[in-house]
Simulated scan of single mutants.
Amino acid sequence: MTELLSAGLITAFMAGLLGGGHCIGMCGGIVSALSFALPPSRRHPLRIAALMLTYNLGRITSYTLAGMLIGGLGQLLIGEIKAITQLLSWLAVVMLVLMAFYVGQWWTGLTRVEALGKYLWRYLEPLGRKLMPVQNPGQALLIGLIWGWLPCGLVYSMLLLALSSGSSFNGGLLMLAFGLGTLPTLLATGAAARQLTSLLRQPVWRQISAFLLLGFAGWLAWPLIN
Rank of each mutant, 00 (worst) to 15 (best):
Q202I: 03
Q195R: 15
Y63L: 06
V93I: 13
Y119F: 05
I60Q: 07
S89K: 05
G153H: 10
R206I: 03
A7E: 06
G148E: 04
Q202V: 01
A100N: 05
L17G: 04
L200T: 08
C152M: 13
R47H: 14
M26C: 12
N56V: 01
P126V: 10
F101L: 15
L145E: 01
G16Q: 03
A15R: 06
T61K: 07
L161P: 06
L57M: 10
V113T: 11
Y119R: 13
S209G: 10
M14F: 14
A49K: 11
S165Q: 11
V94M: 15
T197F: 08
L163T: 08
L98M: 14
A50M: 08
W147N: 11
S167H: 02
M132R: 10
F36V: 00
T54P: 03
A188W: 00
T11P: 05
M95R: 07
V31K: 02
V97G: 07
Q75P: 01
T182V: 10
Y123N: 08
G138I: 09
L120D: 04
F36Q: 00
L69S: 05
I208E: 03
L163F: 12
A100D: 08
S35G: 12
I60C: 08
G179T: 04
Q86R: 12
T108V: 11
M52Y: 00
L77D: 02
I81P: 00
L46D: 02
L183R: 09
R59I: 02
F211S: 14
Q86N: 14
I208D: 04
A193L: 13
M14R: 06
R42A: 15
I146P: 04
L53G: 05
A191R: 11
S6F: 11
G144R: 00
L213M: 14
P184T: 11
G215F: 03
M68D: 03
L176I: 02
G28V: 01
L65G: 13
T185R: 06
T64S: 12
A12G: 07
W149F: 15
F211V: 15
N56L: 14
L76A: 13
A12K: 04
K82V: 13
L73A: 14
L131W: 07
L51G: 01
P45I: 08
I48H: 09
L159Y: 13
L220S: 14
G153E: 10
S164W: 02
G166C: 10
G20R: 01
L51C: 02
I10E: 04
W149L: 14
R206T: 06
F36A: 01
W219M: 13
I48E: 11
S62G: 03
I70W: 05
A188P: 00
Q105L: 08
L163A: 15
I143D: 00
